[in-house]
Write a protein that binds this DNA or RNA. Structure first.
Lengths: 230, 230
DNA sequence: GTAAAGAGAATTGTTAACAATTAATTCTTA
DNA sequence: TAAGAATTAATTGTTAACAATTCTCTTTAC
């Protein structure tokens, strides 16, 4: 049984965030305050605060008197997000190259293992999340908090976009061992190679986009009730 | 008399934000909910929501059961923020170079005029705000919303840091017509020159920092009651 | 049949009282 | 007097009722 610790607004945020990341909550899905209250057993006030935070991260669209819906970036927004991410990945990769410690590399390798494990287990939603987090692990080694946080936001939005416009996000990309080759290049201090693979990687991700519309009605309770930590 | 439109959480944010930007609210200053309620004539709930937003932007530090205080970045954080900003300014400048339209240039020139006007009028706090906004105007011409928003955040935090650690922020830097020379270079499509001047500009800004502590007690009402739009 | 109007339900926004926590003060004791 | 405990005040956190708005479904008119 799930331990009943009292959740705060940040916990609620994280739960909703994770649901989106693992593609259990589709872009465009309407979130009513009441439903979220029921799912997490928290007050409306708390949910409203969580919504405020989520909207600041562009995870939900919050319209006054209209309520919240999982964000559904337009084509233009999607393009800008991928452009921003490509630039940030590049900039951070440079710093990571200079600053990554042995323990950073170890962490990257450990992350690669987790990814592989999820792939072996056939746990697609976990794998999707991990393959996004990989880029944040690389960014973290650059030792610049603000930039890394921004990258994290962009990585999240990329996943959202892939869920919206991707043919089938799943093991189509990233599975060609690109992540591993990037870590190899970082360890070898080979900036050119790392940069090139990363650029290819980003391009192939963006290449998956198709820009058609999708259906979005879903059962909130069934989706959100799952606690990934349990 | 100020028109009494009903403020929302974003309005309250902006007012507090502006107060910090114009150095009327010093880093470290404690903000009690009650005081902000009184100043703006809004409910506590609204203030609490505004605090949540401000803390997401690192404008205030929000500690549970302890309340809010204007953020006071550490030395390390300050350095990372300037590093991030330097990288972002550079990246955006490249895009601006390629994408700036004639009307973008016009907007830049108009902004320069405003800056000059504030300087002539001796309106230092306005000038401080405008000289920060200049960089956002440049960034906006790059036509990438997420990156520009991030830059905006970094510019804001730079101002905060200069208020905290700067000897005397005021017309010491930026007044050597550096902004104008950057616009000239953009118009001339001279990326190298623009990049160089921008780099020098950023370095000279960071050079103003001294890293000593400061006193922070202030009269909230007197500071915040001013409506810059009035 | 379609569109406008209206009643009702559902949802979001606001408020004020109360609870919990932290900070400040007073009172004790060595 | 100074340190520590106990009390009080100030501040933050939470809740539930109420108000306002939007949405939905029915009715009516053309």
């Amino acid at each position: 049984m799930t331990v009943n610790v009292k959740l705060n607004e940040y916990d609620v945020c994280k739960r909703i965030r994770d649901s989106v990341l693992e593609q259990r909550l589709a872009p465009g899905t309407k979130l009513t305050e009441e439903a979220i209250c029921d799912v997490f057993g928290v007050s409306r006030n708390l949910v409203r605060r969580a919504f405020l935070l989520l909207s600041k991260d562009n995870i939900i669209d919050l319209e006054r008197n209209k309520g919240a819906a999982i964000a559904a970036p337009t084509r233009t927004e999607a393009h800008q997000i991928f452009e921003a991410r490509t630039i940030m990945e590049n900039a951070l990769l440079q710093q990571t190259m200079e600053r990554a410690t042995a323990s950073d590399i170890t962490e990257m390798r450990a992350h690669l293992e987790q990814e592989q494990q999820a792939l072996n287990d056939g746990d697609t939603s976990l794998w999707i999340r991990l393959s996004g987090e990989f880029h944040v692990v690389i960014g973290r080694a650059a030792k610049n908090e603000p930039m890394c946080e921004f990258l994290e936001q962009l990585v999240f939005q990329s996943s959202l976009i892939l869920a919206l416009y991707g043919n089938q996000h799943a093991p189509s990309s990233c599975k060609g061992g690109e992540h591993e080759r990037i870590v190899d290049a970082i360890e070898a201090k080979d900036l050119d190679t790392a940069t090139r693979i990363m650029a290819e990687h980003m391009a192939s991700l963006e290449g998956l986009l198709k820009f058609e519309t999708k259906d979005t009605s879903q059962d909130l309770r069934a989706i959100l009730a799952t606690d990934p930590m349990a």
